[in-house]
Every structure is written in structure tokens, then in C-alpha cells.
Design a protein around this nucleic acid. Structure first.
Lengths: 196, 196
DNA sequence: GTCTATATCATGATAGAC
DNA sequence: GTCTATCATGATATAGAC
């Protein structure tokens, strides 16, 4: 079903560095990760990192962009595979749940990291393209009469808020069971909250 | 209505430091804030900071604890002022919305900051006492028959997820209007999602 | 209790060999 | 393109005067 975004082509040094960065940034945080740490984890030298990237921030930006692009690709796939807003939004939640289980670190870094603290100039997650697309799905649902007419920000928060909250709980270790087990229930609640 | 938690008694040096820390931590982040920065903002010397606190981390911990204690006090107040789960949960959201408007930085630091990165040993927000209390409200609602019987984590995420999502949007500057304007609508959606 | 001045250390980033 | 060795910066934390 939802494949993890193809953010890495394994083997290449550049990609090894990005994978190592993802691992370290999510485990210890950006500021607790030194460039020598990244070099050790990626099994490359410090010099290589500075050859492929301008600086440490540049690694984080490349990582962030590749993750949000992968997410955006998943959303486009969903848009073509489903026609109604209900099906689309449900598919989004299913995809997010599966991605959280299969690429825990990617989700953690994408949704959770305080990018503004180390990526000045990058838009906050909330206004990133994937989140805008999700709001579009909801807006179209209102236009089609599937979803009650209301403020689109509130409707979008209601549809996806519960699922995102549960993802947070899962990433924090507060939720023991795999997220896909909860999909049907989460979706029922989410849809009830806004369905026409 | 919901007063900001009394996390500071203005005038005292110790409190001046905490207020300055809150301001700087939310504006630039913990790791982008140096102790001299804090000293300058608080109008005290570096030595004073190290006299009152063990180290920079200790300042962050004191800040975090005072904020969660203030929040917990608000929740206790709500528990005594309201009897039904519906009233309690609605009051919680109203309180969170007002607190976000009146003490933006406090909410940002409490809900948003990646505490694990600079406060090792502290539990994640999700499993902090306030969030547990909120889940208790929901559980009691199920016991009383107000809320459909279901997984309490899912029910709690559904009730509060939309509101928390909207708070995030507001803090990120994506939502222009004050949160209390949206309270009625948010609550209607939240309650529909789980009401018996 | 509060201050200034400073020791110590770790980090990001670079230079230059291979 | 990749590596090792090194530098310069800026941070934390402390010492010691007042």
C-alpha cells in the first residue's frame, strides 16, 4: 500500500549521509548531533560531508525537502486513486499510519522537529505543501456536499487532528498498539465530526 | 475566565530569569539561546543565573515544571467547576484557546518544544500529568454513558485533536483569527466525533 | 547575592595530502 | 572525491572581587 517515500537511493555517499542524519536528528536532535557524529554513523569522513553539502544546515534542508516531496507524491497518488473527499481523507490517514510504522524516524522528523530552529526561511509544517493539499481535499469535500459547510481550517483540523494526535502518542511511546489497528475507529470519529 | 498560570512572581530575580528564558527559548529555541543572552534579557548577570540555577538545563526544567503545574491547576479547577465530561472537555478547550492568546509563548513551549532534546529524563508531553487528566475526563465520560465506548486513546485524540491542531496552526501563524472565535465550531465537531 | 573576567572545552568548518 | 589533521569561534561553567 503506502510505500515509504523514496528519499534515498542506498549506496551513494550523499544518501548515506542523509540517512545517518535522519537517524541521529530524530534520536538525539539536530543540536545534539555533531558533524563527526554524522560522519561516523554514515561511515564517511567529515571532509566528504562538507564536499557534498554546504554545511550541517544544508544536510538538514536536503533531508526535510526530500521527505516532504515524498509525502507530496503519496498525496498525489491518493488524489488520482480516489474521487470522493471521504475516500481521499481516509486514504491519507491510512498512509500516515502505515508510514509511521514503517518509517518512524521520517515521520518524527517531518511532523515533529522544530525546523524553524535550524532551518530559517523554511515554512512551518502547517503551511507546507502536503498540509495544504490535505486542506484542499477537505475544501473539495465541502464543495461536493460531502462535508458540512464551515471554516476550512476547523474542518481540516477536525478531520486530521485525531489521527495526528494518535501519531504523536505512538511516536512518544504512549500508544502500544500499531496505528493501523486503530484506523477504522479513528476514521469513524473523524468523519462523524464533519460529515454532512 | 482562564487566568494564565502563575508561573512567575514578577520582580524577583529568579523569576526574571525564567521569564527571559521562556521568551528566548520560544523565539530562538533552547540551543540558539546562550546564557549571556538570558542574562542580557533578564537584566541580570551571568553569575546570578548560575547562583540561582545549577545550569542552563536547570532553568529549562524549572520553566517546564512551573508551566505544567499551572496547567494542571487549571484542569483541577475545571474538574470542580463542571460535572459532566462534555462540559469539562469543552472547558478544557476553551481554556487552552484563551491561554494560547494570552500566553502564546507559554503554550508554545509547553506543547511544542522538543523537551527530550534538552531535558533528558522528563516525560514527553503526551504522558505528562495534564494530558493524563484530559484522558481521565474522557474515560469518565465513557463510564457515564456520555461518550461511546471505545479505545480511550482514540476517543481522547478525537476530542482534543482538532483543537490542538488549530492551536498549532495559530502558533505557526497559519490561522489569522483568534482561537476563541472558533470555539463553538471546534467543539461541535469534537463532540460529534465521540458523543453517544 | 550579585557582579566581571576568564578557563576550559567542543563544535563547525577548512586546508591540503592522496 | 575522499580523507586526516587542524584552526577559529563561541559556548558553558567557574573563580573570585565586591
Amino acid at each position: 500500500m503506502a510505500r515509504p517515500p523514496a528519499y534515498v537511493a542506498p549506496g551513494q555517499i550523499r544518501e548515506r549521509i542523509i540517512v545517518a542524519a535522519l537517524q541521529l536528528f530524530t534520536q538525539r536532535g539536530y543540536f545534539n548531533t555533531s558533524v563527526p557524529d554524522m560522519a561516523r554513523t554514515a561511515q564517511v569522513s567529515v571532509g566528504s560531508i562538507y564536499h557534498h553539502f554546504k554545511d550541517k544546515e544544508d544536510v538538514a534542508r536536503a533531508l526535510y525537502l526530500s521527505l516532504t516531496e515524498g509525502m507530496q507524491a503519496e498525496l498525489s497518488r491518493i488524489a488520482t486513486a480516489h474521487a470522493t473527499a471521504g475516500e481521499r481523507c481516509r486514504a491519507v490517514i491510512a498512509m500516515l499510519f502505515e508510514l509511521t510504522e514503517s518509517s518512524r524516524e521520517a515521520m518524527d522528523f517531518m511532523l515533529y522537529a522544530k525546523h524553524r530552529e535550524f532551518l530559517p526561511g523554511e515554512r512551518p509544517v502547517c503551511s507546507s505543501q502536503p498540509f495544504e493539499t490535505m486542506r484542499d481535499f477537505v475544501q473539495q469535500g465541502m464543495d461536493r456536499g460531502e462535508i458540512r459547510r464551515m471554516d476550512v481550517m476547523v474542518a481540516s483540523a477536525s478531520v486530521f487532528g485525531g489521527a495526528l494526535r494518535l501519531i504523536t502518542a505512538r511516536l512518544d511511546g504512549v500508544l502500544a498498539e500499531p496505528l493501523p489497528d486503530k484506523l477504522d475507529l479513528v476514521w469513524e470519529c473523524a468523519w462523524r465530526s464533519v460529515a454532512a
